[in-house]
Structures are given as C-alpha cells and as structure tokens.
C-alpha cells in the first residue's frame, strides 16, 4: 500500500473503539435488549466484533456461537476457542454438518446434480444465519454483524447469510483497518497472522478466490468510494487499469446485496421509497 494511503486509512484507535463501543451499547439497549449473540469463525472479522461487543456490554451480555462444518479447518475452531478463552465469554458449538448435508442429500436428488461449491458455501452461510437468529430469539439477544467495509463493497459474502445481522460495528472499516483495530483490542496473534479465508473448503483463501489482495482492494476502494476519484483518475495514479475496473464493476454489480428488497410502487406512500423513518423510530 502506498504510504500516503496507508496513513490516510490509519485509525485513531482509542477514539474509534470508543465510538464503536458506544454504538453497540446505545443501539442494543435503545431497542430494549441487553444481550448480543454472534458467530465466531476463528477469523479476524468476527474476532474483532467479539472483542468490541464484550468491551461494550460486558462478558455476561455476549454469547459466541461456533458453527463448524465437517470440512472446516480444525485450526479455525481452535482460533475461535482462543478468543472465547481470552475474553472468558459464554459460547456454544453448533455443528452445521447435519442440516447442510441433509439438505443437499435431498436437493441433489431432486435436481439430479451435485451442488456447486458456491451453492454449498451459500447454504452453510445461511445455515449459520438461521442458527444465530434462532439463538437470538432463544437468548433474547441481538445478532451482531461481522462483515467489514471491503467485503460489503465487493459483495464478497452471502446475502441473507453472513451479511445478515441486526447491527454491525465493523461495516465501515476496511480490511486493513480491521487488522489495525484487532491488534489494538488484543485479538490473538494466530488470528492476526493467518490468511483470511471463508473456510468453506480446504485451502480456500479470500485473496486467492478474489484474485487480488485486500490491500489492493482497500487502496482502490478508498480512493474511489471515500475520496470520490473516478476510476480513470485512480488509473492515472498508476494502478492497474483492469484491476481498478474489475473492482469498480464488482461493487456496482453487488449493490443488490446491500439493499433491502425493492418494492413496486403503487400507493402514495411506499415502504423503502417515501415512508421515511429511522430504524430507531419508536425506541
């Protein structure tokens, strides 16, 4: 990353942490909740959410859910357990192999073909979402999101799966900022150092699958989204033209994942169009 961009993206750690802790306390308690629940994958994003939630609400008000599938790397579970131990927070391990395999056993027969890795990955992400939302009701706890700004922009996530949550403290942090803040709040070294992976199949890494590094993505996204430079201006600055265009197209193509479903307008006042209230309305 270029030094000037790296410097521009550098967070004021204490300030950022206090704003995010305040966000979690305020937006959870305002709607009548005391507790939160979140998936803990062993990766850096959910680890950061776990540390922030625990700092904000206290260990007795958070619950971590570890949801391995049979092909998940054992080191992922071990890293997630390291977070649980370090924070000394309550947790539940919920294997998702049973429901996911049962689903595809039936569906593969119905469709007469084996599901692609993409479909299997989406199903796992949504199985985890279903589990978290069930535990949300069981524990009277809001689901905390674990998607960062880079993956939300790139659409590198499953709609209604890992992208689903009630509130997300890290959704305005680029991946490099997630790393910075994670080191600041004390996320274990083993998590900070490993290559990011959705862990949907063996040896998968995000950067291999995306075809570019998170640093490259952050650098280009920051200049396009935050500084509002045009793709051509970014290319003029010496970035690879095909990479810039690829990333920009990817963000636009995935806008649908970041929006609630669109509604056909018929009446004079339509939800999502001219029925305008904050979500905080009424709380």
């Amino acid at each position: 990353m270029r030094p000037d961009i790296e410097q521009a993206l550098r967070l004021r750690e204490e300030l950022t942490t206090s704003v995010l802790e305040g966000f979690l306390r305020d937006e959870v308690r305002k709607v009548g909740f005391e507790r939160v629940v979140f998936g803990l994958s062993g990766g850096i994003d959910s680890a950061l959410s776990a540390y922030l939630a625990t700092r904000a609400l206290g260990r007795e008000h958070v619950h971590a859910v570890l949801m391995p599938y049979r092909s998940s790397s054992p080191s992922s579970l071990a890293d997630a357990m390291e977070v649980v131990r370090d924070l000394d927070i309550p947790h539940t391990v919920v294997e998702i192999t049973g429901p996911v395999d049962a689903y595809f056993e039936q569906m593969d027969k119905l469709l007469g073909e084996q599901a692609s890795p993409l479909r299997r990955g989406n199903r796992m992400a949504r199985e985890r979402m279903v589990t978290l939302y069930d535990l949300s009701a069981a524990m009277n706890a809001l689901v905390v999101g674990t998607s960062n700004k880079t993956e939300l922009l790139l659409g590198y996530g499953t709609q209604f799966g890992d992208m689903a949550s009630a509130l997300n403290p890290i959704g305005d942090l680029y991946k490099c900022q997630v790393r910075q803040l994670s080191a600041y709040v004390g996320v274990p070294q083993s998590i900070l150092k490993k290559a990011p992976s959705a862990d949907l199949w063996a040896d998968q890494t995000d950067e291999k699958e995306l075809g570019f590094t998170y640093d490259d993505a952050d650098e280009i996204l920051y200049q396009w989204v935050d500084l509002r430079l045009t793709p051509d201006e970014i290319i003029e600055r010496g970035y690879d033209a095909s990479l810039v265009r690829h990333i920009v197209q990817r963000v636009a193509r995935n806008q649908y994942k970041r929006k609630p479903p669109i509604i056909a307008k018929l009446s004079g006042r339509t939800i999502g169009i001219d029925f305008r209230y904050l979500r905080d309305w009424g709380h």
Partner: peptide, 10 residues
Amino acid sequence: VGYEDGVHFY
C-alpha cells in the same frame, strides 16, 4: 451526543 441509526453525535 448519542446515536441515531448508527450516526454518532460526538
């Protein structure tokens, strides 16, 4: 001070 839908007044 406070938050409104994630917006923090400082």
